[in-house]
Design a protein around this nucleic acid. Structure first.
Lengths: 208, 208
DNA sequence: AAACTATCGATAGTGTTACTGTCTATATTT
DNA sequence: AAATATAGACAGTAACACTATCGATAGTTT
């Protein structure tokens, strides 16, 4: 298929496709002449994946490039997961070593029996959130950490179970990457729904 | 205190504070003369809250303005929660009414016994994620929805419990808003940690 | 009181990100 | 042959979150 058809089928404008090509987010197309290209079904799929990562997962184009590279490379799955985790916005460096947030996170993680490497991006993210909470004088969050952790464990277990179901390695990598990125949004959505339900039960007409 | 001290104590540059003032994110300071202002502790707190919402929660300045307005107004708490939910990036409109994602989400939410209004932003977000998954041919996600829901329910319940602990209404609103926004990041971080742990157990050296 | 530093408010400028538009030289289609 | 489409290069744009500069005070130091 040629450019205009690729654009139609994927729902991405020709100009944007060219942009993604410049950014090396698409595989090289087949050439029918040095000056003309033919695209295939995998280009459509790739474009859809890019849009999902960008629109739903909120990734930047640079992050998408890193994530796609990880999904393609024949890399250990836990490494692919690490790359996907690192690509997600908000994954920055750990707060000061001795920060209260780090201490609390490590302590609760230990009490869950988790084996987590010190450079896990989630550890930095969670510690950062805790530090913010503490700085805002919302200490109450600490007491609910264990329950958050149990919930996270449930989710993580089914995440990994889903990966194991995949028929081949390429598919597993894709599942890891897509699941890591889109799973956050899915859970966030479900949490809002559950919050509304819990709010109804707890204080909708009673005290507000 | 005056500008330079406010800047020091909050860790926000003078230029940025002026920017936030223009954007009406800060309360009006006291005036010692028509041309000179005095800031108080609540300005420091407010700046810290803004930075947490922006840096940790990933909100835009416009979203912060909406959220702060909701936290300040003497508004039913479930409404404040709705505003906070709507302010979070990724909260857009519902996919086409008949989309598979919407159907699946409504069905699982019904089976959980949740009462969720049709314009809950989480419903739209979750439906959107599901549609993406389906378009990418990752149907396996549907089978894990119930477990995601149980986890979301755990989190939502402790979220609401935390709110109920607050001593007064203003504090409750703040808790709702901060918890809604920062809670997503906290959970995402914990999920990554739990994922690493689960990955170790499942395929670290065995099959990768 | 003069000199110096800080602040206020307004406005303009900067850097980044993610496109979008335009152009020329070829190809392809009719 | 004429009309349309494509490739590739590069310039332009819109939104966003600041950042810098400026003239007119205000406060502080000497």
């Amino acid at each position: 298929m040629k450019m205009s058809e690729l654009s139609e089928r994927s729902g991405v404008s020709v100009a944007s496709i060219k942009f993604y090509q410049r950014e090396e987010l698409l595989p090289e197309p087949e050439r029918s002449s040095p000056n003309q290209a033919r695209y295939a079904a995998n280009h459509v799929d790739r474009l859809r994946l890019i849009r999902a990562l960008v629109d739903v997962g909120g990734l930047s184009v640079a992050a998408v490039r890193r994530v796609l590279a990880a999904a393609e490379a024949d890399i250990p799955l836990d490494w692919a997961m690490g790359v996907a985790q690192h690509a997600i916005p908000g994954s920055v460096e750990l707060p000061d070593q001795g920060s209260r947030g780090v201490t609390e996170i490590d302590s609760v993680s230990a009490s869950m029996g988790w084996m987590v490497s010190p450079d896990n991006p989630g550890r930095a993210m969670a510690a950062r959130v805790l530090d913010s909470y503490l700085q805002l004088d919302h200490e109450e969050l600490l007491s609910v950490l264990p329950e958050y952790c149990s919930a996270a464990e449930i989710v993580a277990r089914v995440d990994l179970g889903t990966v194991a179901l995949q028929p081949n390695r390429a598919r597993m990598s894709e599942t890891v990457v897509v699941g890591t990125v889109l799973g956050d949004s899915l859970f966030a959505g479900l949490r809002r729904m559950a919050q509304e339900d819990a709010a109804h039960r707890q204080f909708s007409r009673a005290e507000s």
